[in-house]
Design a protein around this nucleic acid. Structure first.
Length: 640
DNA sequence: ATAGGGTTAG
């Protein structure tokens, strides 16, 4: 032990100042390390380093807190955040404006928005800088309080605090609701006036706002006007198309991106894979998977789930299962993608088995998981099981059923012929039924030939979706099935009056990574002659085969083609048969429902060529193979 | 040295 008396007062002074200096130096090196960790996104490690610093007996200084608080914010740990708030007060760092802002941001990101507001209100007017407003604004936006974000922006303008591009980045996403899009558009105008629209981040943000609101053309216009598009611009546009179901636009844009100098990243691939899933473009999806393997970034759960979803929806359940099985941490999205995949392909029992396994691993099902479970029940004809799950959903998990769940349930009851119950269910709904709900009822009326109920469902559905041509066609076909030609004519007049035209249905087949698209009567494909030749041969074979049956089961080409000519599904199948060898699967996708006549055609083709044929349409997969029974179908094509 | 922000799956 050092005797104090040996050290002179000057020595003590020297010692103390050097100690202080050391302490400050320590603080600096702690801060440097903290900054490095934060930069690398290693927030857990950063927080651990902060604790180590305290154990070491070093005191944090004002420069320490922003990093430590940012770590709490990123990890969303309000307890550590509040502790840090105490340290801020103890060390007297509270008045520092940047510490204040860090605190506001931390509370916002930990969902303690009211604490953030309190801090903001307590700080004097002179210290409420733009950054403070920015942090709180973004907080309101991320805590789903868009109106508060907007009124804070008004307060900011009123107080004369100048806003900047970062204000916009926090505020614009608050306008991503139909109710607020007007405000968003006025912000767009405001940005143009202030010249903030030259900031790429702001434009990306506006672009995202438009596409998320479904104003996809606005978004595309903005995108096209960007002189130097960044990775995020591409991603926002690709994801926007993907979220709006415009899958072929996604592939188109991805192709353009590949020939630009911007390299795609995982976010790009997630959007592209989701579109491959919608298109059934498994080969393109597989190419993306290979392309990802040679990229520098690693796989993440978003990517793996997107791959699982793509393979599952394309019918490659084996590959989907392998990826799923090898996933170290499966989340609810992984499980839901598998459940939906099995459900779509008629393996309802496996889908339900997966659902109970998921619950056993401790994952709580959410609304989307129940949609996949209910639709699996509907596709597999497990009516009562579906009803059980529906009641379990609210009773056991407290999930309020949305219109999407009711639509599944109406479909479930409707397919089973329980139309009266389906109608009663709609009448008892706690939320307003949407087009899909009434549309499901209308579809069920088609299967079971209930004209009266169909008329009611039609009336409701076109109130909600007056321009959805599919519903007009559906009712017209119901009338046609009932030999009510007056009804058919009535619908045609109605459609003409409203200037509605049936979009041509198209079918596509994917071959060697390229999508081949056909519309009815198509003659644009380079192999057109061979395709029609193949169709003729098939029809001859079928006629030969069916000649002996009484009554004749097929009188194909002379009957029931579309106005434009041969059905698109038939062209796609003929193309597929021409270009693939025996044993390979042909998957045809149709953007509308497969028409009834084509069901019979497919079944017979699969018999004469002795191959399984899979057609996916707007509502489900259809597997055609020899020996299958009768199909219940609903056709969307006009019965001519 | 220090604070605020934009793109992703079922």
């Amino acid at each position: 032990m050092i005797k104090r008396s040996v050290i002179s007062p000057t020595k003590i002074l020297e010692f103390e100042s050097s100690a202080q200096l050391t302490c400050r130096n320590y603080s600096n090196s702690w801060n440097t390390q903290l900054r490095e960790l934060a930069k690398l996104g290693l927030f857990k490690e950063g927080l651990e380093l902060y604790r180590q610093m305290l154990r070491f007996g070093d005191s944090p200084n004002p420069f320490t807190f922003p990093f430590a608080l940012k770590s709490c914010a990123s990890l969303s740990i309000p307890i550590s955040g509040s502790q840090l708030h105490c340290h801020v007060i103890k060390t007297g760092c509270e008045p520092e404006p940047f510490v204040q802002t860090s605190l506001i941001s931390m509370y916002s990101k930990c969902s303690l928005i009211d604490n953030a507001r309190q801090l903001f209100d307590e700080s004097p007017q002179s210290r409420k800088l733009a950054v403070c407003y920015n942090a709180l604004l973004a907080g309101y936006t991320h805590n789903s309080q868009p109106s508060k974000a907007m009124s804070l922006f008004n307060q900011m303008c009123f107080s004369g605090v100048p806003f900047n591009s970062i204000t916009m980045l926090g505020l614009i996403p608050a306008c991503t609701l139909p109710a607020h899009i007007r405000f968003g558009m006025s912000l767009h105008g405001c940005n143009v006036k202030c010249g903030l629209d030259s900031d790429l981040s702001v434009v990306n943000c506006l672009l995202t706002m438009y596409v998320r609101c479904g104003l996809i053309d606005f978004g595309r216009k903005l995108f096209d006007e960007i002189p130097k598009k960044g990775l995020i611009s591409w991603n926002a546009m690709i994801s926007g198309y993907a979220q709006n179901g415009l899958a072929s636009q996604v592939l188109d844009l991805y192709g353009k991106m590949e020939s630009s100098e911007v390299e795609p990243d995982p976010v790009t691939f997630v959007g592209v894979l989701s579109s491959c899933a919608h298109l059934g473009a498994q080969r393109i999806g597989h190419d993306i998977e290979k392309r990802m393997a040679c990229s520098s970034f690693g796989v993440n759960s978003f990517l793996t789930n997107a791959l699982i979803n793509m393979y599952a929806r394309c019918g490659n359940l084996g590959r989907a299962w392998k990826l799923f099985d090898e996933m170290p941490e499966k989340n609810i999205v992984s499980w839901t993608a598998m459940i939906a995949g099995y459900g779509m392909h008629g393996h309802g029992e496996i889908a339900l088995q997966l659902f109970s396994e998921m619950k056993l691993t401790g994952i709580q099902p959410d609304g989307a998981a129940f949609v996949s479970v209910l639709s699996a029940c509907s596709h597999a004809g497990l009516t009562d099981k579906g009803l059980e799950y529906f009641s379990e959903m609210e009773r056991k998990y407290g999930i309020r059923p949305g219109p999407e769940h009711y639509a599944c349930l109406v479909d479930l009851l409707g397919r089973a012929g329980r139309l009266k119950e389906a109608k009663e269910l709609i009448d008892s709904m706690s939320v307003k039924p949407d087009g899909a709900v009434w549309g499901a009822l209308l579809g069920a009326c088609k299967i079971h030939g209930d004209v009266k109920l169909a008329e009611l469902a039609f009336e409701r559905v076109i109130e909600l979706e007056p321009t959805n041509v599919g519903y007009y066609v559906l009712l017209s076909n119901i009338y046609s099935d009932a030999d009510n030609m007056e009804g058919v004519a009535k619908i045609r007049v109605m459609m003409r009056g409203r200037k509605l035209r049936k979009e041509p249905g198209c079918s596509y087949v994917e071959l060697k990574g390229k999508v081949h698209l056909f519309v009815a009567g198509d003659r644009n494909h380079p192999q057109t002659d061979k395709i029609y030749e193949m169709l003729n041969r098939l029809e001859d074979l079928m006629e030969e085969m069916c000649a002996s049956t009484k009554p004749k089961t097929y009188d194909g080409r002379r009957k029931k083609e579309t106005v434009a000519g041969v059905h698109s599904e038939k062209l796609a199948i003929a193309f597929g048969l021409l270009n693939t060898i025996a044993g390979t699967e042909i998957l045809v996708i149709k953007n509308l429902r497969v028409c009834g006549d084509c069901h019979l055609f497919m079944k017979l083709v699969s018999k004469v060529v002795n191959r399984e044929i899979v057609v996916r349409d707007a509502s489900r997969f259809h597997h055609f193979k020899d020996g299958d029974g009768v199909y219940a179908y609903t056709g969307l094509a006009f019965a001519e």
